[in-house]
Design a protein around this nucleic acid. Sequence first.
DNA 1: TATTACCCTATAGGATTACTAGGGTTTAAG
DNA 2: CTTAAACCCTAGTAATCCTATAGGGTAATA
Lengths: 135, 135
Amino acid sequence: MLSKRTKYGLKALTYMARNHSEGTVQIAMIATSENIPHKFLESILLTLKKTGLLGAKKGKGGGYYLLKEPAEMKMTDIIRTLEGPIAMLPCVSLNYYEKCDDCPDEDTCSVHKLMIQVRDNTLQIFRNTTLADLV
Amino acid sequence: MLSKRTKYGLKALTYMARNHSEGTVQIAMIATSENIPHKFLESILLTLKKTGLLGAKKGKGGGYYLLKEPAEMKMTDIIRTLEGPIAMLPCVSLNYYEKCDDCPDEDTCSVHKLMIQVRDNTLQIFRNTTLADLV
DNA sequence: TATTACCCTATAGGATTACTAGGGTTTAAG
DNA sequence: CTTAAACCCTAGTAATCCTATAGGGTAATA
């Protein structure tokens, strides 16, 4: 299951992509428009900024803005930033790999093989979808 | 992310499928062989029994056994029993549907559409994979 | 210089996860 | 018919994560 954090983040980014031409967007705008708790959204946009997906301008008339064209922003990057691993098991994660405690040998683990299939499939969708596709 | 509960359950079922010809299998056997905490596994097998995937025989010489041929046991059934919804959002779940609080209209929600894609893809894998494929 | 809007830390309440404890009940074997 | 094996069931618990809020600090602009 996706966390609300990720879902909210995606909705916020989509909102920004829709209003892309109009410069900066304020937290409050997005929050009310997309029904996201203000302070929660604030922390989400902050992490998106830290990972280089968003830029921000302080002071009056400030706000957040996309650092890349929507068509350049892949789902893989967004979701990994907000949610973490895309894989369903740590032992099949490309970016957050971790060995299983119980499994003596990954190559012969049947669950491992199955989850690699799922991961590859999901990854293909996320790689081929950009923010522009969501608008 | 899959819970350990689901992962352990899948491993246990696979173990049972491998030793399918030999009648009942005891919890202790599976637990030691697959490195699963005994009592935890007990509760997992219990729920698999309640949903009709496993049968059990009490008393000396008893144990658990598969109620269907491995080739008849679909991943969808197993995973839904142990993990719950397969979808990444409640609003795209077939079996555990729930409306989102924030979303006024699902049909125009971009995140919704994306997650339907992912669900359909994952579902196709799980529908076409049986316990026999894992052995 | 006042206001706006982002920036940052801390934390609280609730849910979920991964177990563990402790015993009850049924069944088959000796 | 007794005993021990093995499933059955109910609680509970420590740790972690999730969602969200509080409260103020800082930079920039009008």
